[in-house]
């Protein structure tokens, strides 16, 4: 999976959780907690959704990478076959 595809998956799943979010205005490098008002449950649902679509597991110690879009994209690209 390349960056483009990874972004697509990420925002698709995010769209279920935060449907009003416009992907174009999200800053890739800023903390999503502040930007999108996500709480721990949102993060978890987001990661579960990504796992369901891509099959990629996200162990506890990697969770912090998902605090930003850039981190999430990077993780997925690294771990896709």
């Amino acid at each position: 999976m390349n960056t483009q595809e990874a972004r697509q998956v990420i925002f698709e799943v995010l769209g279920d959780i935060a449907p009003e979010v416009d992907p174009s205005i999200v800053d890739d490098d800023l903390d999503l907690t502040e930007q999108l008002d996500l709480d721990s449950m949102d993060y978890l649902n987001w990661m579960v959704g990504i796992n369901e679509v891509t099959g990629i597991d996200i162990p506890q110690r990697e969770v912090s990478r998902f605090l930003t879009i850039a981190g999430a994209v990077g993780y997925i690209v690294e771990h896709s076959s």
Binding site: L44, N51, I58, P59
Partner: peptide, 11 residues
Amino acid sequence: NEERSVTQRIL
């Protein structure tokens, strides 16, 4: 949580 995949993670 170490033993669990993300789908089973406990908050």
